[in-house]
């Protein structure tokens, strides 16, 4: 039995800086099978319809975090979103919201990378150990405390979901806060005091208005909104207790 070929219209927001003054929509008629992801639809366009279409992708299995885009206005990993769910109406694909568009579906992520570096996303030991002293040990319970926040794949869907980041890109934002929190609550880490400076700052956690959409769109169930809001309390403690606690112990 041969399968009847189905065709779905895919609308793509194009932006070619050398020819477009602003992004324009272009529709492609894409034949597809039920197992095809939105990413595969784009790959079909690039291979057979228009080789100039630009988009980022790598793993095709929701772990590299490269293929985030807006699918019908919702921040999604295109490898984890399926064309069959949009048939026969079709779908519209745009570059991740709130980031500048470099070209077509490729966004400028410099701001995110700078913020990622600034929070020191690595363990800063309380007391460095020598090789002879062995590993930094941790119990399963201590690991459970941060595990959820360590699942972040830097896909930036939460930034595309965060109107506060869209309105003010200085805001530290959800994903970075999730990573910051992941290290701050790691029992092996001693870098919290350094990172709290970012949390407490004017464009730290208090730009968040608990919209909560970041946590809804996260493909890895990190709950970045929770990380931001837990750190509001941490920051409030830090704000008031600094008058009570001797320097260095309160943080």
């Amino acid at each position: 039995m041969s399968e009847i070929e189905k065709i779905i219209p895919i609308e793509v927001l194009r932006y070619r800086p050398e020819q477009d003054t602003e992004p324009v929509l272009q529709t492609f008629q894409v034949p597809f099978t039920d197992d095809m992801s939105v990413l595969q639809g784009l790959q079909y366009i690039k291979d057979y319809l228009d080789g100039s279409l630009s988009f980022r992708w790598s793993c095709r299995m929701a772990i590299c975090g490269s293929c985030g885009m807006m699918v019908n206005g919702i921040p999604s990993l295109s490898c984890k979103t399926f064309l069959r769910d949009y048939y026969p109406v079709g779908l519209r694909i745009e570059a991740l919201a709130h980031f500048p568009i470099e070209r077509d579906l490729v966004i400028v992520m410099d701001d995110f990378i700078e913020k990622l570096e600034s929070i020191k996303p690595y363990i800063i030991p309380k007391k460095p150990r020598t090789l002879i002293e062995g590993e930094y040990l941790q119990t399963p319970t201590e690991r459970d405390a941060y595990e959820q926040f360590s699942s972040c794949i830097n896909c930036m869907l939460c930034y595309a979901a965060c109107p506060q980041y869209g309105l003010n890109s200085k805001f530290i934002g959800p994903g970075i806060m999730a990573l910051l929190h992941r290290y701050n609550i790691d029992s092996r880490d001693g870098g919290k005091a350094q990172r709290m400076e970012m949390v407490n700052a004017e464009d730290g956690v208090f730009d968040c208005t608990a919209v909560g959409y970041c946590s809804k769109v996260c493909p890895k169930h990190v709950d970045p909104g929770n990380a931001v809001n837990l750190n509001k309390m941490e920051s409030a403690k830090d704000y008031f207790l600094r008058f009570v606690m001797p320097k260095g112990t309160g943080k």
Binding site: S118, K170, M198, A201, D203, G204, A236
Partner: peptide, 16 residues
């Protein structure tokens, strides 16, 4: 990052 690290006074208002 050229971030402004000035401490926010929002904790007061956020708690209220």
């Amino acid at each position: 990052m050229s971030a402004n690290l000035k401490r926010s006074n929002q904790p007061i208002f956020w708690l209220l």
